[in-house]
Amino acid sequence: HNLTITQGKLFFHYNPKLCLSEIHKMEEVSGTKGRQERNDIALKTNGDQASCENELLKFSYIRTSFDKILLRWEPYWPPDFRDLLGFMLFYKEAPYQNVTEFDGQDACGSNSWTVVDIDPPLRSNDPKSQNHPGWLMRGLKPWTQYAIFVKTLVTFSDERRTYGAKSDIIYVQTDATNPSVPLDPISVSNSSSQIILKWKPPSDPNGNITHYLVFWERQAEDSELFELDYCLKGLKLPSRTWSPPFESEDSQKHNQSEYEDSAGECCSCPKTDSQILKELEESSFRKTFEDYLHNVVFVPRKTSSGTGAEDPRPSRKRRSLGDVGNVTVAVPTVAAFPNTSSTSVPTSPEEHRPFEKVVNKESLVISGLRHFTGYRIELQACNQDTPEERCSVAAYVSARTMPEAKADDIVGPVTHEIFENNVVHLMWQEPKEPNGLIVLYEVSYRRYGDEELHLCVSRKHFALERGCRLRGLSPGNYSVRIRATSLAGNGSWTEPTYFYVTDYLDVPSNIA
């Protein structure tokens, strides 16, 4: 807008934040220059609390790290170098490059900038070799853009010569660093050979998330399962459950009422301010606690030095998902009996873990797994792929695949051998790939016309006998059925096997 004052003059007093240069501009645009008398524009009460600059400061050096910015700028000295009290560095987070010096300023003089007072450097006698002032900004957020400017702080001049310097606002972004852990990993099994893994992005990506790394490792069953005799009275049979499938998407929606109208769909109840505040506090606490764990609990591995020492970490090797089922080394339970199943799973520490690289999504279907087997899954978020990966501390989750139908069934015939004193040795093959492992066998036998009897055969007993022995049988026709019990439950009964026990007292003698 054009402003013209045809008559009258300007009068400025007691404006401590208004620089004289701005008042002189007002004289020019209003056409009143030359009308004012000496005392109409006070030299001592206008701009006496402001830094009124008329020179431009330029930054000469900028260096960044993930949490620091090192700045240096060209030296500046007023005509009387004693008038320079120091520099004021202003900075704040700036997602967009549209910041002005006066953003967030209120009537009390406060604003949204963080201000650092910096002492002037030592003055050199040689004007050509003056030290460049600077400042190291610490405690910054990774991968965050900051708006920065600097200006001088000078003393009051009796001659009211307006001098000083100020830089333009520059924008500097800190470097990326390792992201925080992925949030809320959930693993479920939808079949006997697959596990579905879902997660949420890290709360602090500290860069642009480029991919996720998912490692999985087959877990050995508890050692007590191999040692305890679950045929003993009072000892509860062990059981394991597989990871249940995901709930429906509708039930997972946030901010939804727990109660549904019987007449149909209901609208979600909005969260109160107290609920939102509580969630923010919980989120802040979780982030602080995660940072504490990362800094205190997890110790970084030592990389190899120039002395030739090897990095103890196993090298990563990509495998196809079809090879995942046989990740671990199978060892027989008892070496003397080769027909026992290889369900003991000690994992070799030198073995390469299978892994998958996930790009542009937060889910993965891990296939080719062994049925009813526990897996430990390790999830890392990465925001750099080359020249070397920059990934987060791992988040861990466990899951067990679903049982395989008929995996616990005894394959092959049940054979028998009759000894003296009416002892019958029953023999059968253990299931080759049971659900988890076989903890015991149930032997059901009966003599024709009598009630059915049951015998429990422990895992250890089966390994020693290759089956079991029935003792003290009365003469007669017998039928026997056997079924295995694994961590997933009972298998199917075998087809009945028949044998006849004679009275050993009636056996004919070869003595003449």
Rank of each mutant, 00 (worst) to 15 (best):
V296R: 06
G325D: 15
W493A: 01
F372Q: 02
L213P: 01
T303C: 14
S492C: 15
A220I: 11
V443G: 01
Y478C: 00
Y212V: 05
D273G: 05
S223R: 13
R313G: 06
K271G: 02
R313I: 08
T328K: 10
S304G: 04
D503H: 03
G207C: 03
V397D: 07
L225M: 07
E452P: 05
S274L: 06
F298G: 02
S239V: 05
Y441R: 01
Y504M: 05
K406R: 12
R390G: 05
Y448P: 07
A399W: 02
V411R: 08
E281N: 02
L453R: 03
I410M: 05
K317V: 05
S274N: 07
M427W: 09
E417T: 10
R240Q: 12
E495N: 12
R240P: 11
T347L: 12
L437N: 13
K432W: 06
V439I: 12
G264I: 04
E224V: 07
S304A: 15
L369Y: 01
S474K: 05
F298K: 02
E465R: 08
L228D: 15
T241G: 14
C266V: 08
C269H: 01
Y445S: 06
P496Y: 08
V365S: 08
T288G: 05
L437F: 05
S257F: 10
V334C: 04
Q219A: 11
N422C: 06
S492I: 12
V358Q: 14
R318M: 11
R483Q: 10
R400E: 09
T241L: 11
P434I: 06
Y478N: 01
N490R: 15
L440S: 03
C269D: 04
F462G: 05
N206D: 01
S367R: 06
R318G: 08
D250I: 08
Q384F: 06
M402V: 11
S486W: 01
V358G: 07
K302T: 13
L369S: 04
E404N: 08
N421F: 02
E433R: 15
R481W: 06
G489M: 02
P475F: 09
Y478V: 01
I377M: 05
E290W: 02
D250H: 11
G322N: 09
L487R: 10
A399K: 03
S315V: 09
C382P: 15
S284R: 14
Y375D: 00
V501E: 01
F285M: 03
V393P: 15
S342E: 06
P332H: 10
T272N: 02
N208K: 15
A220E: 13
W216A: 08
G467W: 02
T241V: 15
V457P: 00
A335F: 13
F499V: 12
E260N: 13
T288E: 04
I418E: 06
R313F: 07
G476V: 01
N490A: 04
P387A: 12
P205H: 02
N360H: 15
D503S: 09
G476H: 01
V443E: 00
I366N: 00
E279R: 02
H461E: 05
N208C: 09
Y445P: 02
P245I: 15
L321V: 14
L487S: 10
F215K: 05
L437K: 06
R353I: 13
P434W: 02
F226A: 13
P314E: 04
R318A: 13
I209G: 15
F337G: 13
A463Y: 06
C468M: 14
S268I: 15
S305R: 09
R353Y: 04
G308R: 14
R286D: 01
H454F: 00
H211M: 04
L235P: 10
V397P: 15
E404T: 11
D311H: 05
G322R: 11
E388P: 05
R313Y: 04
C231N: 01
E247F: 12
F298H: 02
E362M: 09
S342F: 12
N360S: 10
T347Y: 10
G374T: 05
A309N: 10
Y500W: 14
R447S: 09
L470N: 01
S268A: 15
Y292R: 02
V359W: 06
Y500S: 09
Y504E: 06
L277Y: 06
T485K: 06
S304N: 14
S363V: 10
K317P: 09
S479D: 05
V334K: 12
S239T: 10
L228R: 06
G322T: 10
L213H: 14
N435C: 15
E452H: 15
S320T: 13
A399H: 02
L293A: 06
E378K: 07
P434Y: 02
L379C: 07
G308E: 13
R376F: 10
A405R: 13
T340P: 11
S341T: 07
H461N: 07
D323N: 08
G374V: 04
V443L: 09
P496R: 13
L280H: 10
T401H: 00
I276F: 13
S479W: 07
T241D: 09
G264E: 11
F246Q: 14
R316Q: 14
L440G: 03
D323Q: 15
C267L: 02
D204P: 02
K317Y: 08
W242E: 06
A395H: 12
V327N: 07
S268T: 15
T415K: 11
D503I: 02
C468L: 08
N255T: 07
E452F: 15
A399Y: 03
L453S: 06
R447K: 02
V365W: 11
Y259W: 11
R469V: 06
G306F: 09
K460S: 11
Q256M: 13
V327K: 05
T343H: 09
G234V: 09
W493R: 01
H352C: 09
K271A: 03
R376T: 10
R286M: 10
Y478W: 10
S363N: 09
T288P: 02
S486I: 00
Y259L: 04
V299A: 14
F215Y: 04
L235D: 04
F246V: 13
S262G: 08
G308M: 15
E351Q: 11
D503A: 07
D273L: 10
R471Q: 03
T307W: 13
E389K: 06
S248T: 13
E249Q: 14
E442M: 03
T343G: 10
L464K: 06
E452G: 05
S509A: 08
D291G: 02
N255I: 13
Q275W: 04
K287N: 04
E265Y: 11
R471L: 04
I209L: 10
V439H: 03
E247S: 11
I482E: 00
I377Y: 10
A407R: 11
T415G: 10
D409V: 04
K278R: 05
H416A: 07
P354M: 12
G234S: 12
D323G: 04
H461C: 12
E350G: 07
F215V: 11
L321S: 09
S458I: 03
V507N: 15
P403M: 02
E452C: 15
S492Y: 03
A220M: 13
P300A: 12
K278H: 02
L321W: 11
K278A: 12
P312L: 09
T485C: 04
Q275F: 03
G322C: 12
P387K: 10
D261A: 14
S342T: 05
K287P: 03
F289W: 04
Q384W: 12
P245Q: 11
K432R: 07
I438W: 04
A463S: 11
T494G: 02
G472A: 13
R459Y: 03
L505H: 05
G306T: 12
L228S: 03
C231E: 01
L225C: 05
L228T: 05
F462E: 02
L228M: 06
E227R: 07
I418P: 12
A309R: 12
P434N: 05
S344H: 11
L225K: 05
N422P: 02
A395P: 01
W216P: 05
P346V: 14
G467K: 10
F215H: 10
P434T: 06
D273R: 08
D229S: 07
E465L: 11
E378M: 10
S342A: 13
R353N: 13
L235R: 07
F355E: 11
L232F: 10
C267E: 01
I209A: 13
L364G: 15
I377N: 01
S363G: 11
S474W: 12
L505V: 10
G467Q: 05
N208G: 10
F289Y: 03
T502P: 13
P300G: 09
K361C: 07
A488Y: 04
N255R: 03
S305A: 08
S367F: 05
F337Y: 08
H211T: 11
V457Y: 15
Y500I: 12
Q256C: 09
A407I: 08
H416W: 12
Q380W: 11
K361Y: 12
L228Y: 08
G325P: 14
T401L: 07
F289C: 01
D323Y: 14
S479K: 07
R301S: 10
G491A: 09
L321K: 14
S268G: 10
P354A: 15
E290Q: 03
Q429C: 12
R483E: 00
V359I: 12
E260L: 12
E247N: 04
F462T: 06
S284I: 01
T307L: 07
P238L: 04
T497H: 05
I410A: 15
S474C: 15
Y498A: 08
W216G: 14
K287M: 02
